[in-house]
Simulated scan of single mutants.
Amino acid sequence: MTPLRCLLIDDEMLARLALRQALEPHTDITVVGECGNAEEAILAVDRLHPDLVFLDIHMPGMDGLELASRLPAGALPWIVFATAYDTHALRAFDAGAIDYVLKPIDQDRFDHCIARLLQRWRQMEAPPTRFHALATAARRMSVRVGEHHRVIRVADIDYASAEGNYVSLHVGGESILHRESMKNLELELGPEQFLRIHRRTLVNVDRVREVHPLFHGDAEIVLRDGTRLTLSRRFRDAAKPVLGLR
């Protein structure tokens, strides 16, 4: 399994150290950076592209809840809030958190949180099966468009791309904006049918026609309608068995 890339955001160094110690038994998670305030964090998320963020709620200046609201939804990592007050739990989930942990960290509760995260991560990386493909073909999703909802057959989506605070669903030459994070959309669409080829792109594997190697480990994916998308080096190993590459 590809390790989860994790960023720690807390204004207290000892709190970041406690998170590092709690993460030590979990070898499927790699800490790629630490930040002591929201301004540093915004730059780090854009530069490091973490899959997971542990985010303190109470920080001087911009707090964790405001920081979460300012991150672009299209490229939003999973967020686990760290807080000393369980009264913040509802606000944390309203801000898009996938979970929260209380300070001081209880290792059993923390391990339970990590187990759920890794289970979801494995589901996202699982290879497709015929049963899953048939289930995906029958599914629908609803997207708010103005004052009404547009119902889309999941199998009709060619690919999805991050667009600022939205994701754009590309369906038969039409682009439909949907306010959702790429990670949540990936779970909604189903990793058995939609392959992450870039931190900002998901593609319907049934639409892939050709794959052309590029420089530095990247590749170009050509869809049936001629659309060209980048398969980044970071996601190429996971894409190989799905696309039959060697």
Rank of each mutant, 00 (worst) to 15 (best):
Ala41Ser: 11
Leu229Phe: 03
Leu118Asp: 04
Phe81Ile: 12
Ala160Lys: 02
Glu192Met: 12
Gly173Lys: 09
His212Asn: 06
Val143Ala: 01
Glu220Ile: 09
Gly226Leu: 08
Gly146Leu: 13
Val222Arg: 01
Asp106Arg: 10
Ile105Asp: 06
Asp63Ile: 09
Ala18Pro: 08
Leu118Glu: 01
Ser168Tyr: 01
Gly172His: 03
Asp99Cys: 06
Pro72Ile: 09
Gln119Trp: 10
Asp56Leu: 02
Cys6Ile: 05
Asp218Cys: 00
Asn184Ile: 03
Glu66Phe: 03
Met59His: 04
Asp11Cys: 14
His149Cys: 13
Glu186Gln: 12
Pro25Glu: 01
Arg5Ser: 01
Arg120Tyr: 08
Leu231Gly: 00
Phe93Leu: 08
His49Pro: 00
Leu243Cys: 05
Thr27Glu: 11
His178Lys: 13
Ala44Cys: 07
Leu4Met: 09
Thr2His: 02
Arg5Met: 01
Ala75Ile: 15
Glu39Val: 15
Arg70Gly: 04
Ala82Leu: 09
Leu195Lys: 13
His212Glu: 12
Leu231Thr: 04
Val171Gln: 05
Ala95His: 10
Glu24Asp: 13
Ser168Asn: 07
Arg150Phe: 03
Ser175Lys: 14
Arg16Ala: 07
Pro72Trp: 10
Ala73Thr: 11
Ile197Glu: 03
Val205Phe: 06
Ala135Gly: 11
Arg196Asn: 00
Phe81Gln: 07
Arg153Asn: 04
Leu65Cys: 07
Ala238Phe: 03
Leu231Val: 04
His112Ser: 13
Arg228Asp: 06
Arg246Leu: 14
Met13Gly: 10
His216Asn: 13
Arg209Met: 14
Ile42Val: 15
Arg130Val: 15
Gly96Pro: 08
Arg236Ser: 00
Phe93Cys: 09
Ser161Asn: 05
Asp206His: 12
Pro127Lys: 13
Leu187Lys: 05
Arg196Gln: 13
Asn165Met: 09
Asp158Val: 01
Glu163Val: 14
Tyr166Pro: 04
Met62Gln: 11
Leu118Tyr: 01
Pro241Cys: 14
Gln107Leu: 05
His58Asn: 15
Gly96Ile: 09
His26Met: 02
Asp10Met: 10
Asn184His: 13
Gly173Glu: 02
Gly36Met: 10
Val211Phe: 00
Leu67Gly: 01
Glu163Gly: 01
Pro72Ala: 12
Arg196Gly: 03
Ile114Val: 14
Phe93Arg: 07
Gly96Asp: 10
Ile221Lys: 03
Tyr166Met: 08
Asp158Met: 01
Met141Lys: 06
Ala68Lys: 05
Val167Phe: 05
Asn204Phe: 04
Val154Tyr: 01
Met182Ser: 02
Leu229Pro: 07
His26Arg: 02
Pro72Met: 12
Pro60Tyr: 08
Glu210Ala: 15
Met13Lys: 11
Asp206Lys: 13
Asp10Ser: 14
Thr201Ser: 06
Gly146Ala: 12
Val208Gly: 06
Leu17Ser: 14
Ala126Phe: 10
Ala41Asn: 05
Gly217Asn: 09
Val53Asn: 06
Trp121Ile: 00
